[in-house]
Design a protein around this nucleic acid. Structure first.
Lengths: 170, 170
DNA sequence: TGCAACCGATTGCAAAATGCAATCAGTTTG
DNA sequence: CAAACTGATTGCATTTTGCAATCGGTTGCA
């Protein structure tokens, strides 16, 4: 584990963790896309990450304590990557980042609907989402079962936009 | 202006803007340190940015619409860099980033006291800070004059920590 | 008037990171 | 038994970064 830091400033240290073009993309796909396996992340990435970079970043994120890796009982070669609490608490940052990007950058409608819903849901929705992620990745019990999951809500919003755009194009 | 993007996802586009090791550091020094000149950013940076990287990032941030540049009337060669509204609205993201870093990373006490105060101040303090930045960089009138400025409050907190550590070391 | 300090950069160069395609050995499926 | 799939690894060209030296011009001071 590298302990050489440019400074002890929290913003600087945060940048040393995910101040690159891929780390947050991988975490985004795990958090919002529910991706857990190498191939899912590799082939599912709309930005087209290369396999060597993905391998390097997964390793790095594990060393940093953001991810853990476990064997998949269904396949001797398969590895399941899990978010740690450290990574799960990035949800509010992701939400703010998405909200900021939606205002200032040329986002596409179908890829920003999730950010819009997450922004409108506010901290209550973020907390529920983090709770679901803890259940999914850390095995903790769900606090309030029965509600539709945040990921499913976001996904439904995405699919509604895609369907609307497909029908209006036809 | 480059218009080639990896995807229209808001998080991805945000990363394309400041997903590197220096852009947010420069903006941090302008926002929290009040730096406006090249040399201030170059020599004041605790992380030690190189002059060619600083020049490159300032240019890039201007092309992206995060900064503007103006002549300093006091010196024919001097340039004043100003934050745009796009950059000023990063304040909540900076606050969250600082809060996250304080929890999970080996921050130093004197460099994280600002993040702590900003976190405790909450959205009300962030709004006041953004208002002050708009006044400082965009020339808008201050909404509620007379209050101690957020930057001064954060700076006072920093200096109190430094003074306390100096006296306890003696 | 001369000269040092300062202004925002620029240049050259080595090292590191990135991007891409091909490939690996083992596992599972059909 | 072959094809598809598993998490990677390798080689290589390109790009980015980091560092030190330097640039031409401006300013303040003796």
């Amino acid at each position: 584990m590298k302990t050489e830091h440019r400074s002890g400033c929290p913003i600087n240290l945060s940048l040393e963790v995910f101040g690159d073009r891929w780390s947050l993309i991988i975490l985004r796909d795990m958090i919002f896309g529910g991706k857990r396996h190498f191939r899912e992340l590799l082939n599912g990435s709309i930005e087209g990450i290369a396999s060597n970079i993905l391998a390097d970043r997964l390793k790095r994120l594990m060393e940093l304590g953001m991810l853990t890796k476990a064997d998949d009982p269904s396949h001797k070669q398969k590895a399941i990557y899990s978010l740690t609490e450290m990574a799960i608490t990035l949800v509010p940052i992701m939400a703010h980042l998405g909200a900021w990007g939606r205002v200032w950058l040329p986002v596409s409608e179908e890829l920003s609907i999730r950010a819009e819903l997450l922004e409108k849901g506010g901290p209550a929705m973020w907390d529920q989402f983090m709770d679901e992620l803890r259940h999914e990745h850390l095995g903790t019990p769900v606090a309030a079962p029965g509600r539709p999951s945040v990921r499913a809500t976001l996904q439904a919003g995405y699919e509604a936009v895609v369907a609307r755009k497909a029908s209006s194009a036809a």
